[in-house]
């Protein structure tokens, strides 16, 4: 690298870094360019709030998919957030550092399992179980929520662990020295002090859940309708795009891009909320 010199290296690195950022920008621009004109010409209210999705008839209302995404994601949070936060609290406050050094990487391995494998387990194990025990088709909001809830655990656990570990030890000592028990210290001082980091972890997990596609297609059943209960089949926004993109043309294709725009906006909002939570914490120190 000597012939490039210090400045040359900097330029090369800058070029590589910029190409990564520009890929992101180009994707966003492309989706917006393809989708936004459709939203405007079809009418945003009709597009977002009408329940009729009949591409052949020229009807493109994504309300059922929005409702489905919201329910599946909220369900996933109900499963993943308490489990994840409890796990993080237990690992940081109640387990020796050594044990934690083994368990944390194991949990992070969960993030490395391909989503199709989660979906496969959902189809083979979870859906039949729901069908036989609770009724309905099995492929449902509930199945999607449980699978996604498990899939987002690594995100929630590892970010929560980082934020609980960054709580100064002097807070714990101060509390214990006042006669608080270990558990009182944990839930009255340590966890509240890590609150913004834990909230950021949950929001990032939520972003993952709402964007997840493959596992959800496999376990949620994909029926385009507003679910009446947790046991009904639903189709999420992501599933809608993936399922129909292969054969969509013309307006139909634009409508799918428009669905992508809606997803992009939701995820951008979630990420900036998480960013705000993290910055708020940084500002406190």
């Amino acid at each position: 690298m000597k012939f490039l010199g210090e400045k040359g290296v900097r330029r090369v690195l800058a070029g590589i870094a910029f190409s990564a950022i520009s890929a992101l920008l180009l994707i966003a621009l492309f989706i917006i360019k393809e989708g936004l004109p459709f939203i405007i010409s079809y009418g945003p209210v009709k597009f977002l709030l009408s329940s009729d999705w009949q591409p052949q008839a020229g009807k493109f209302g994504i309300w059922p998919m929005i409702v489905a995404s919201v329910w599946v994601t909220l369900g996933a949070m109900l499963v993943g957030a308490p489990l994840g936060v409890a796990c993080a609290v237990y690992l940081t406050e109640f387990v020796p550092r050594r044990v934690m050094g083994v368990i944390k990487p194991t949990i992070e391995l969960l993030a490395g399992i391909p989503s199709v494998v989660y979906g496969f387990i959902g189809v083979m194990v979870l859906a039949p179980l729901i069908r036989s025990q609770l009724g309905g088709p099995g492929l449902s909001v509930l199945a999607g929520a449980i699978i996604l809830g498990v899939m987002i655990l690594p995100t929630i656990i590892s970010i929560s662990i980082d934020s609980i570990q960054s709580v100064p030890n002097s807070y714990r000592e101060g509390s214990l020295a006042l006669g608080a028990t270990h558990w009182q210290t944990t839930h009255m001082v340590t966890v509240p002090a890590a609150k913004s980091g834990i909230i950021a972890a949950i929001i990032l997990g939520m972003g993952r859940a709402i964007g997840e596609t493959m596992a959800v297609i496999m376990v949620a059943g994909n029926a385009v309708k507003i679910p009446g209960s947790a046991l009904d089949s639903v189709r999420t926004l992501t599933a809608n795009i993936a399922l129909e993109m292969g054969y969509a043309t013309g307006q139909h294709r634009q409508a799918l891009f428009a669905t992508g725009v809606v997803l992009l906006i939701i995820i951008m909002i979630l990420n900036s909320l998480a960013g705000m939570a993290i910055r708020k914490r940084a500002g406190k120190r």
Binding site: P168, S170, Y171, E173, G174, S175, V189, P192, A193, K284
Partner: peptide, 8 residues
Amino acid sequence: FQRPNPFP
């Protein structure tokens, strides 16, 4: 303690 450590 050595450094003041009020809770947040």
